[in-house]
Amino acid sequence: MHLLLPPSEGKAAPAAGRAFDLDCLSFSELNDAREKVLRALVETSKREDAGEILKVGAKGMREVVAQRDILNAPTAAAREVYTGVLYEAAQLHQGDGVLIFSGLFGVTTGEDLIPSYRLSMNVSLPGIGPLKTFWRKALAGWSPEAGFTKAPKPQAKNGRSVDDSATRESSIGGCDDTADVTVDLRSELYRVTQPDVSNARAHWWDVRIADSRNKTISHMAKHYRGLLTRALLDSPAQPVDEVARTLGATAIENEGNIRHLTLVPFGL
């Protein structure tokens, strides 16, 4: 099972830790695109109109100034850097198999070491253009399955690659029935990849959070997406709809191998 998450605006800036190293991120095929965005962000952050371009108010300018030196900034696991509502609810642990999409890195795992930064996907960076358009092009043809396949294998002490099939199975779901299941918990802004409808065995779930009147909710949706993330990670062998029903009422619409899940959390 692959869980796709957005980043969060709220972040905990690592006070210490390994300096940022682009080459240590998962999915190295994205590094050329990442480097372009990183360098454009550094240059933009030095400008007098940086706040306007990055859509950051006065309270956030300290982060903008700090990221002028982001290439040397200390890092922590992405699951620890992101601290927003979704992440508070998800309580991600080491080894949780999630993919996090962002305007700066495209996509990373929860374990990738990243610095704190300020850059939303709704920004248009000088020299790059609208980030959502940029990442849609950079990630064209990319899929969770391909991404996990390309992730580097762990190395034994003698330097040889070891068979990590058991570890990989555990980290992405741990059950053959859910191996080709993707649950898209991203907000619309970060949906820069599309379902792979060519693979009949692959099932893609997108998630909508609504109230009892079937009205889509916005801010609190992050909280419930986080709770659903945690529930799915805790029950990787269970069908997605069964796990969702532990949080509220559900409705499902099928479109080929795409499942549109609406969750109405208890109490709404």
Rank of each mutant, 00 (worst) to 15 (best):
A156Q: 12
G51F: 06
R186Q: 06
A151D: 11
S45Y: 05
R34D: 14
L261W: 08
Q67I: 07
V85W: 00
V85S: 03
D211H: 04
Q238W: 09
D163M: 10
R259M: 10
R225M: 01
S165G: 12
E253A: 11
T108L: 09
T133I: 10
H2M: 09
G57S: 11
A12H: 11
K132D: 13
P14G: 03
L233I: 07
E242K: 12
A146S: 13
W135G: 05
A66M: 03
F27N: 09
G110W: 04
F20N: 09
R259A: 09
T149Y: 14
P14K: 02
P126S: 08
F105L: 09
D69A: 09
A138K: 02
A179P: 08
H219P: 00
A210I: 11
L139F: 07
L227A: 03
Q67P: 03
I252G: 02
G141H: 12
A40R: 02
R160W: 13
P7L: 00
I172F: 13
I70K: 00
V240Y: 06
K157S: 15
V240D: 06
V240N: 03
V64L: 05
R186H: 02
V123H: 03
R208E: 14
L189M: 07
S165R: 15
I100M: 02
W142F: 12
V85Y: 00
L228M: 01
W204C: 08
S170R: 15
L233E: 01
L86M: 07
I209A: 04
T149H: 14
K46V: 01
R191V: 04
Q94A: 14
G174I: 08
L232Q: 01
H219L: 13
L139G: 05
P126L: 02
D206E: 14
R118D: 05
G256W: 10
A78H: 05
D196S: 12
S171H: 14
L263Y: 04
C24Q: 15
R68Y: 02
E43N: 11
Q194F: 11
G267S: 06
T44Q: 08
D163H: 10
A210R: 08
Q194M: 13
K150M: 13
D180A: 15
L54T: 09
G17H: 10
P265N: 04
V85C: 00
W204I: 05
Y224Q: 00
F266C: 04
R230H: 04
L22D: 10
S120T: 12
W142S: 04
L22R: 10
M61D: 07
D241A: 11
D49C: 10
L99I: 04
T109L: 11
A146M: 13
E35F: 11
E255Q: 15
L4V: 02
E35K: 13
L131D: 07
W135S: 06
R39Y: 09
G106L: 08
D163S: 13
I53C: 06
D180L: 13
T149S: 15
F20I: 08
K59A: 13
N254T: 15
G10C: 00
S161Y: 14
Q194S: 14
F101L: 06
V56S: 10
K137F: 07
A210N: 07
S235C: 06
L247W: 02
G174F: 07
P130S: 08
L139E: 08
